[in-house]
């Protein structure tokens, strides 16, 4: 015989589960409808065929993916990966000393510096990119000043080049690198560095043998946070890049809105998504490896 309290308990557990389900249902439905469903649609479209005047003809094939093997697309993907990697490396090189400096400040100053690092991130991305046009263009601020000072005799042409794109990307995503690095460095016990110092390590060895291994999860997080948006960048190459600085984001936009080849654009998106997922998997592998190590010790 089931005791009355046991029945009550079962009923309460069910009621509890029901309440949780009702809490989650709207959000889940929304996400399924406006995130998972659109992604599935893109996948379907990527296997369809372009109509004569744009639009979609539901004629399924993998032709779009085969078309992507064309050298032009390969070059753009390669360039995107290159520029995104370059951006990530520069952000890491700039971000690590900065994050280290912040992490060693007094708590009060740390808070101030972190806010200062965050504020540009809150500022409109278009505006921040436009600022570089204003500075870098032929008759822009940099050239005007340098010419007036007599440091150069002819304006430097940086705008509309890959250099300008990388500069813009670094500028845009540097805070994404600094914050996770800061969080990781801040957690490292200062006495560990002093211990290495005490055990005859020089500065470089302290950095390479102690600091880097201990902050690896932060480094990986920062790299992923910079790499993913850089890879899919659209505004920066569109505004700062030249005719030859096209990145995947611009190509997708071009196929959708100008060439109106939605199936091809969708196939491009799927490849971009695959690259991003690859980066994410790498990230989670590295994080869980670090977690495992922490748990083991």
């Amino acid at each position: 015989m089931m005791a009355p309290s046991a029945i009550a308990r079962k009923a309460r557990k069910e009621a509890d589960g029901n309440a949780t389900a009702w809490l989650l249902a709207p959000g889940v439905l929304w996400t399924v409808f406006f995130c998972l469903l659109p992604l599935s649609v893109i996948f379907l479209v990527s296997c369809a065929t372009r109509g004569t005047y744009g639009g979609i003809v539901w004629d399924f094939s993998l032709d779009n993916y085969r078309d992507l093997l064309h050298a032009l697309y390969g070059r753009i993907f390669g360039q995107s990966l290159l520029l995104a990697s370059l951006t990530t490396i520069i952000c890491l090189a700039m971000g690590f000393p900065l994050a280290y400096y912040i992490a060693r400040l007094s708590p009060r100053r740390q808070a101030v510096w972190l806010v200062l690092v965050m504020v540009p991130f809150w500022t409109n991305f278009l505006v921040r990119t436009y600022a570089w046009i204003f500075i870098l263009r032929t008759e822009g601020l940099m050239n005007t000043v340098l010419l007036k000072l007599g440091l150069i005799s002819a304006p430097i042409e940086i705008l509309y080049s890959n250099t300008a794109v990388v500069l813009g990307l670094v500028y845009g995503y540097l805070p994404f690198m600094i914050l996770p690095l800061y969080a990781a460095i801040e957690r490292v016990d200062r006495s560990l560095i002093e211990a290495a110092w005490d055990l005859y390590a020089d500065r470089w060895s302290v950095f390479r043998r102690v600091l880097v291994p201990l902050t690896k999860p932060g480094i990986v997080a920062g790299c992923v946070l910079v790499f993913i948006p850089s890879l899919g960048a659209f505004i920066t190459p569109d505004l700062l890049g030249g005719a030859r600085s096209m990145m995947v984001g611009n190509l997708i936009q071009h196929e959708y809105l100008i060439a109106r080849d939605w199936p091809l654009g969708s196939a491009l998106s799927m490849v971009l998504m695959a690259l991003v997922m690859g980066a994410m998997i790498w990230y989670f592998r590295a994080q869980s490896a670090a977690d495992g190590k922490r748990r083991a010790s």
Binding site: P38, V41, I42, G232, S266, L272
Partner: peptide, 27 residues
């Protein structure tokens, strides 16, 4: 199971989010 679904939009490149929604609205 649910967490990654909720967080998915955070990792999707913005361009892709844009075209995916565009395609949904078109379809």
């Amino acid at each position: 199971f649910l967490e990654p679904i909720f967080l998915l939009p955070l990792v999707i490149p913005e361009v892709m989010m844009g075209v995916a929604l565009l395609m949904l609205f078109v379809v």
